[in-house]
């Protein structure tokens, strides 16, 4: 449904905690700050590049809290051997950005 977001509330609060621990500036994390976190997943860099492209919805080179949750969600799915989609499914677009 329109109101459904694939990032579950318990996931979102976990990802929000990680987001805050990275000390966002004006509510945004730069690529420099996010990169090592995603690299920790040990996923191939080309996969992480796709994750970034899908997550940085406004293409400003930074992730806000919702975009970061999308990135982390995709990383966790990829670790479970689910392929990263080529286009962000509507269920993964944060409700604030629809």
């Amino acid at each position: 449904t329109d109101s459904h977001w694939a990032v579950r509330p318990e996931e979102k609060s976990k990802f929000d905690g990680i987001f805050d621990s990275l000390v966002p500036v004006n509510g945004l994390l730069s690529g420099e700050k996010v990169k090592p976190v995603l690299m920790n997943s040990k996923l191939p860099v080309d996969v992480l590049g796709k994750v970034w492209d899908l997550s940085d919805i406004d293409k400003d080179g930074h992730l806000d809290k919702d975009e970061f949750a999308v990135a982390m969600h995709l990383v966790y799915r990829a670790l479970e051997k689910e392929p990263v989609p080529s286009v962000l499914p509507s269920s993964l677009i944060p409700p604030s950005k629809r």
Partner: peptide
């Protein structure tokens, strides 16, 4: 800005 297009905002490229 990002003259190379959106891909240059990607820290993994």
């Amino acid at each position: 800005q990002y003259p190379g297009g959106s891909s240059s905002t990607n820290p993994f490229l």
